[in-house]
Design a binder for these strands. Structure first.
Length: 818
DNA sequence: GATGGGCAAGTTTTT
DNA sequence: CTTGCCCATC
């Protein structure tokens, strides 16, 4: 990342650019001769960078004028298009690096783009000061115009933790029962308002009323007021305030509209409303920019962040929003083998409301994705371990193997298994470096020194390490600070001059405030990482961990060292702090080959030779809560998640479902995910769990395998196939949803509308039209639940009212007629 | 002012 | 079955 404080030349009006047909005009600016020469060299190399593209990619790169939407399926060279497009813009002298706005969602994506542009465009692409995340770019803009939105340029960025602590204070101050109305819930609500671009005055009355007996909007307002007093912004504010800045200050907006001659957006399907508004404002033509030169790249089939405000609709609506848009589809896949792609494509075809793409490859068919049924999650971990060992023997690098789970609790079983096996692994997406307590404490110290108004930081470390400043004392300081309307540190200092405090806390507090005063002067004339070191030592913070005899203490000290070390890479304390709050991530790399374990969400954008996809069971995947809360839309998002999972695999995709899984400590019988039913038989192989004898489990384990095989090859299944050909499928989604509503394992959500699940030829398991060996009213016996009466038949799934166990949905093969 | 027990809740997560 | 948070007690 470039120095966030380097505003490049943005303070001056953007220089008039030559028109495109005057491209060779000499521009005495930014690197002068050198960069001009470079531009020509790059242009000369143009044959290269365009030549390596396929026709669609090339079209996406060369459509330079006006809005462009690139629908880039998984593994079709999306990043290549984006980076080449930037290189092309530079090489053809359409814009200079600082006139291109390129937005990503994650810092990782931003970093990767920078690296690749550097390779493609050389020095001409250096800097790219406006390549970054929505948040980092907004921050940069806000710092320059902070006073226009009621902040100072040095404002602090609060993370979720600070946000919730502040929210708690607000809730408490309003005398609201924290139990009934948890701060976390309010924080989430406010976040979602901010995601939708709603400031306190615009919150819909109904939603505002839903929290704390109608106090929702009021609390939001109070929270925002507190943020301003603290000279702070939370993540949501960065975007919301930027949009407000643009709306209320047309002159400022114009400045940026003119500057950003070309705009690129990555992962457009993940944009939420406020990001969309932000983008719309900046993309407006203005000054020398005649049209909306905006290029959005995304894949509606990989939209998996609806639950945090992403609006798939943004991408679906693109052509309406940006009239005259050129739409380019990238469907040629360079990642996966044929069977894998076919399976993924078939699965995702069950979604409605897609823009519609079909991935294809010129490569080999390769291995078919496999589906394996196992008895329980323990066996699941065991066979995955065994298969990885086998692959390893065949020379597969562990770095090329990943386990992608739906929910993080699934990871534990794999970790435990791998520890016993001595199989090296890494968990991706665990607690981040800067979220660790010791790092946050250390940062709080630094924030107090550089930002005297940062009360949250002060409260955090006032009594860390323990120095005898308890709630009572801090309460006093806080009250004093509020009444005087001054920061707490200052209030503390002043209180020490009075005799309102008891002698002991008074002395402690005085020591602390004078220490802070001393450290503040230190910042002026000492390298910042040395200051940090000094503060951590003098405050007794390092000591605290050294005395700590718990297992983690050593690691924490190590982290603190790493923190100080990493500071050296930054020019000053302020830029360091900014990076920590916005940019810093802690991908623990290196240390030899490892299997990666992560959630499906975390896997987006990555690829592996071999991918294991465990836990494909109803309730877990698709996740029950998604179905409950978002109905059909939720189901479709889950399906996209499945699609993302399969398309991560280059050569091997191994899907697994367990018949029993422990959820909240209780063993539950599960049934295979409906997504399994939606895989195409021609491209998927159903395999038996390897490893032979599993003792007492065997019978049941085979019961589950039987089911699987039988739904595939039994007369019943074949009849169903036949019938499907003869008559159109009956029972739309609403009907099945109604039926499901009676089962205890899934309920139809409110959002259910429209047509039914598509029935597509040649799927693994027949749907509602399948013929079951049982009919309504039949008495059956189940190994686990005992006797019961069939109340509903849906293909090979039965809903049974058990005499003892109540109503359950089970697979037909699990019961016997009695 | 610390420390332990009791109780509720329990997808996905970036910035 | 955990984990994390809150409260009550020493």
């Amino acid at each position: 990342m470039s120095d966030p404080f380097s505003f490049d030349d943005a303070d001056q009006p953007a220089p008039r650019r030559p028109r495109d047909d005057e491209d060779l005009t000499y521009r005495p600016k930014e690197g002068g001769l050198a960069s001009r020469a470079q531009a020509h060299i790059t242009a000369a190399r143009g044959v290269d960078y365009l030549g390596v593209l396929n026709p669609e990619q090339r079209a996406a790169v060369e459509a330079m004028d006006g809005p462009v939407l690139v629908l880039a399926g998984a593994g079709t060279g999306k990043t290549r298009v984006l980076t080449t497009r930037i290189a092309h813009t530079l090489a053809t002298n359409r814009a200079r690096a600082q006139e291109i706005l390129a937005v990503t969602f994650t810092n990782t994506a931003a970093r990767e783009m920078k690296e690749r542009i550097a390779v493609l465009a050389g020095p001409a692409g250096e800097g790219m000061p406006w390549l970054g995340t929505f948040h980092s770019i907004s921050t940069k803009i806000l710092r320059r115009h902070a006073e226009l939105v009621g902040l100072k340029s040095s404002f602090t960025i609060l993370d979720t933790d600070d946000q919730i602590r502040l929210m708690k204070q607000v809730i408490k101050a309003e005398d609201i029962d924290e139990k009934r109305w948890p701060a976390r819930a309010l924080a989430q609500q406010i976040d979602s308002w901010k995601n939708r671009g709603l400031d306190p005055s615009r919150v819909p009355a109904g939603e505002a009323a839903a929290f704390a007996n109608g106090k929702g909007a009021k609390l939001y307002k109070l929270y925002q007021d507190r943020l301003k007093t603290l000279n702070a912004a939370d993540f949501g504010d960065l975007l919301l305030e930027a949009v407000r800045l643009f709306r209320e200050n047309p002159d400022v907006l114009r400045q940026y509209q003119e500057r950003f001659r070309y705009i690129l957006v990555d992962e457009y399907q993940d944009t939420n409303t406020i990001q969309y508004l932000w983008l719309r404002l900046l993309a407006q033509p203005s000054g020398a920019k005649q049209q909306q030169n905006v290029c959005c790249v995304g894949d509606d089939d990989q939209s998996i962040y609806g639950w945090r405000g992403a609006e798939v609709d943004n991408i679906l609506r693109f052509e309406k929003d940006f009239p005259g848009a050129v739409v380019v589809r990238l469907e040629r896949n360079y990642r996966s083998t044929g069977h894998i792609l076919a399976a993924a494509a078939h699965l995702i075809a069950h979604n409605e409301g897609r823009l519609g793409k079909t991935l294809f490859t010129d490569g080999v068919d390769g291995e078919k994705p496999t589906v394996t049924g196992v008895w329980d999650s323990e066996e699941e971990a065991r066979i995955v371990g065994e298969e990885i060992e086998q692959l390893q023997r065949k020379g597969q690098s562990l770095d090329e193997v990943a386990i992608l789970v739906r929910a993080s609790f699934q990871m534990r079983e794999f970790e435990e298994r791998f520890i016993t096996l001595g199989m090296p692994y890494r968990v991706i997406g665990g607690p981040r470096f800067y979220e660790r307590a010791e790092i946050r404490d250390a940062l709080a110290y630094l924030r107090c020194v550089t930002q005297p108004a940062d009360d949250l930081a002060f409260e955090r470390i006032a009594n860390t390490p323990k120095r005898g400043l308890g709630d009572a004392t801090l309460q006093q300081v806080q009250v004093y600070a509020r009444t005087q309307n001054i920061p707490m540190i200052q209030a503390a200092r002043m209180l020490c001059e009075t005799d309102e405090l008891k002698p002991k806390p008074r002395a402690t507090l005085r020591d602390l405030t004078s220490a802070f005063a001393r450290w503040s002067t230190l910042v002026e004339n000492t390298p910042h990482h040395e200051v940090a070191q000094t503060i951590l030592e003098e405050s007794g913070y390092t000591d605290m961990w050294q005395k700590d005899r718990t297992a983690e203490a050593a690691g924490r000290l190590e982290n603190l060292k790493e923190l100080v070390r990493s500071m050296e890479e930054f020019p000053d304390m302020a830029s360091f702090l900014e990076h920590v709050s916005l940019v810093m991530d802690a991908d623990a790399k290196g240390g030899g080959e490892r299997v990666s374990i992560m959630t499906l969400h975390a896997a987006k954008g990555l690829e592996f030779e071999t991918v294991f996809l465990p836990g494909w069971e109803e309730g877990l995947f698709p996740h029950q809560r998604s179905l409950d809360e978002s109905g059909r839309a939720g189901l479709e998002e889950e399906r996209r998640l499945a699609y993302v999972g399969i398309t991560r695999a280059k050569r091997r995709a191994k899907i697994i479902f367990a018949t029993n899984r422990r959820i909240h400590g209780m063993w539950q019988t599960t049934i295979p995910s409906r997504f399994l039913d939606e895989l195409p038989t021609a491209h998927v192989e159903v395999v038996e769990a390897p490893g032979g004898n599993y003792g007492g489990y065997q019978q049941s384990r085979f019961a589950s395998m039987d089911t699987y095989e039988s739904s595939y090859s039994t007369p019943g299944w074949q009849r169903a196939q036949q019938r499907r050909k003869e008559e159109p499928p009956r029972g739309g989604f609403q009907e099945s949803a109604k039926q499901w509503g009676q089962g205890d394992w899934t309920r139809a959500g409110k959002g259910d509308t429209g047509r039914g699940p598509k029935l597509i030829e040649g799927e693994l398991v027949a749907k509602s039209s399948a013929v079951s060996g049982y009919t309504k009213g039949a008495r059956v016996f189940h190994l686990k639940f005992g006797n019961g009466t069939v109340v509903l038949v849906d293909g090979n799934k039965l809903t049974v009212e058990f005499d003892k166990a109540g109503r359950k949905m089970v697979l037909e093969s699990f019961v016997q007629g009695i």
